[in-house]
Write a protein that binds this DNA or RNA. Structure first.
Length: 565
RNA sequence: GCGCCUGUAGCUCAACUGGAUAGAGCAUCAGUCUACGGAACUGAGGGUUAGAGGUUCGACUCCUCUCAGGCGCGCCA
């Protein structure tokens, strides 16, 4: 509803401007230098529901005072408005200093918002903004060298919610996990497992210096011995060298997949480095890049000219010893992604990869795409706090809190919500005690409580045989708290679009907190189950609208909207 | 040394990407229920938006410099 009004107002203002200035010989024609018409939502409601700053923008072009321009435009806008279909929904138009044109929504307009929500229910907020554009989001993509940590947990929460939001606004978005089942890290894992097996057989085997210290490696070693029936050193020596790392990677991938399933993050595509970046594929891509002269040789190594796209320096793709660096198979992988028809690719990475951004964007350029077709979202670390103190973490030393531990301690809902409570690009403090607390300080409960409370009222209304939620338009919805709540409900679709544009689910989290706040304020000020049945019906409709939006929003975040708590 | 990010109320964070008097939650103090779930609500105090210039009708937002903090700068992944 609000989206619709906004678009209509935009057109009406456009018409008014064309009518006013195109035939005016004194003023230069606006064509070519006409500013874009923007309709904003004023922060302060005394300025109405929509405002337009076009008069200020025109001030420079027309060399006139913004106030006079606004006054000039106003009559034409009012004429255009009264002739349009949205006339009943706008109560008045006003010019205010320093030149804003403000639009005030009528009571009928607010009613229409609620009617719209009640009609669309679970689909309210869904739009076609993305026009079916194919989007690939790759995230988590943890190496199968250990269980998922809280850092991965935050990436999973961000990525999953982002895909949900993108889908809601009409993008064809997919979730992809890239499995680095080759390379140094996996080799180290293999050596660690082998060392643990030897130790279990009573041999004093050296553990790799940069190895994974966690106990889970011992568990994998035990499992390996059981499966391969290894009882002696002779049994062990019959194992091919790669058996350890294959077993370890398979085992840990199964662990990771289970972690993600339980976290309610379900990937559409699992891509394996071993299958995509084959020796042959690498050679083909390398030959292609060489032909385009994006590759040169120096000091026995092959370098990629990433500086052509603004990187600090060129990057080695093949070392002088003949091995490829991590970048080379990753270029092949991104080529593979583009070849699957995605218009935009988003890599969600940890903060330690931020030096990698310009490199991989350069790769997109070298592959014949625009570096802008590939976005990198950096998810900053989440530090776990217990009893007010940070818990130190290091995967290598085996000191870390796993995602599973957090999930089991605070529950999936609180965990997912907490991971999204700050802007993605800002570090996050995750307070375990707070997340477990069932009180007002805990934001996730604040929102869920609003939902449960509404449910409880509606349930009671039914039990007492009251009328169903309905907008009659004859009374009610006039109190400040009521209108504030409607206004908040109506802005939901725009919030989703903004989150999608910015690739930032945090905005939705904040919105839901505000929406819950608007509801609680309303609840305190206005009684729903009133003696006046008209008012009761309207207020039931209002809170049912709020409930629907709370449920829709929480669903996109992967957080439950309970009917009772 | 070079590059990126950050700096907003005592604390944790917002501010619709350049809009109107910079807002919430904690914490502090003072209040609110004979009724729909008190896991709630109302009010008060608290700010030179790190600092200094600049751009313009208008700056927390953009540009330059300074200060403070974080991260990245490998033929690692």
């Amino acid at each position: 509803m609000f989206v619709h009004l906004r678009q209509q107002l935009n057109e009406i203002i456009g018409q008014a401007l064309r009518g006013l200035y195109d035939q005016d010989t004194q003023s230069p024609p606006l064509a070519g230098q006409a500013p874009v018409i923007l309709i904003d939502f004023p922060a302060d409601k005394q300025h109405g529901e929509f405002s337009c700053n076009i008069a200020m923008q025109l001030s420079r072009v027309l060399k006139k005072n913004p106030m006079t321009i606004a006054q000039d435009i106003l009559p034409a806008v009012q004429t255009g408005l009264s002739a349009s279909a949205i006339a009943p929904y706008i109560e008045k138009v006003q010019v205010k200093a320093p030149g804003f044109i403000n639009f005030y929504v009528s009571l009928k307009g607010f009613h229409a918002v609620i009617e719209d929500v009640l009609k669309q229910k679970g689909r309210f907020g869904i739009s076609q903004y993305g026009r079916g554009q194919k989007f690939c989001l790759e995230f988590v993509s943890a190496n199968p060298t250990g269980p998922l940590t809280v850092a991965h947990g935050r990436q999973a929460a961000v990525g999953d919610s982002l895909v949900n939001i993108l889908k809601a606004v009409g993008f064809d978005a997919q979730k992809e996990y890239y499995v680095n089942d080759e390379g140094n890290q996996i080799n180290i894992l293999g050596r660690c497992i082998e060392a643990r097996v030897r130790q279990a057989l009573g041999v004093d085997a050296a553990f790799p210096e940069d190895g994974y210290q966690g106990d889970y490696v011992r568990t994998i070693a035990q499992e390996f011995m059981r499966k391969q029936k290894i009882k002696t050193i002779a049994d062990l020596d019959r194992q091919p060298a790669e058996a350890f790392r294959h077993f370890g990677a398979d085992h840990l991938m199964a662990v990771i997949q289970k972690d993600l399933e339980d976290f309610d993050v379900h990937f559409d595509i699992w891509s394996y480095q071993s299958r995509i970046a084959t020796t042959r594929a690498i050679e083909e891509v390398l030959a292609d890049l060489k032909a385009k002269e994006f590759i040169y040789e120096s000091e026995g190594a092959l370098w990629f000219k990433s500086t052509l796209w603004g990187d600090d320096k060129d990057r080695v793709v093949r070392k002088s010893n003949g091995e490829y660096t991590y970048l080379m198979p990753d270029i092949v992988y991104h080529k593979d992604k583009f070849s699957r028809g995605f218009k935009r690719i988003v890599d969600i990475l940890g903060p330690d990869h931020h030096g990698y951004i310009s490199r991989i964007k350069a790769a997109a350029g070298a592959l014949g795409k625009s570096p802008d077709d590939l976005d990198v979202v950096i998810v900053q670390l989440a530090t776990i706090y217990r009893n007010g103190k940070p818990v130190s973490m290091s995967t290598r030393r085996g000191e870390f809190i796993s995602l599973r531990e957090v999930m089991e301690e605070v529950g999936k809902d609180a965990a997912r919500f907490f991971f999204l409570m700050r802007q993605t690009n800002a570090p996050l403090e995750f307070d375990l005690e707070l997340a477990k607390k069932e009180s007002a300080e805990n934001p996730v409960y604040y929102i869920q409580y609003a939902h449960a409370r509404i449910h409880s009222i509606i349930r009671k209304a039914k039990e007492e045989n009251r009328l169903a939620p309905k907008i009659s338009g004859s009374s009610g919805l006039e109190a400040v708290e009521e209108i504030d709540l409607v206004r908040k409900i109506g802005s939901y679709p725009e919030i989703l679009v903004t989150c999608a544009k910015q690739l930032e689910p945090f905005g939705l989290v904040r919105y839901l907190q505000e929406l819950a706040g608007c509801f609680h304020k309303f609840y305190d000020a206005c009684r729903v189950l009133d003696d006046d049945l008209n008012i009761t019906c309207e207020r039931l409709a209002l809170i049912e609208g709020a409930r629907i939006v709370l449920a829709n929003g929480l669903r996109l975040l992967g957080v439950a909207a309970p009917e009772k708590m």
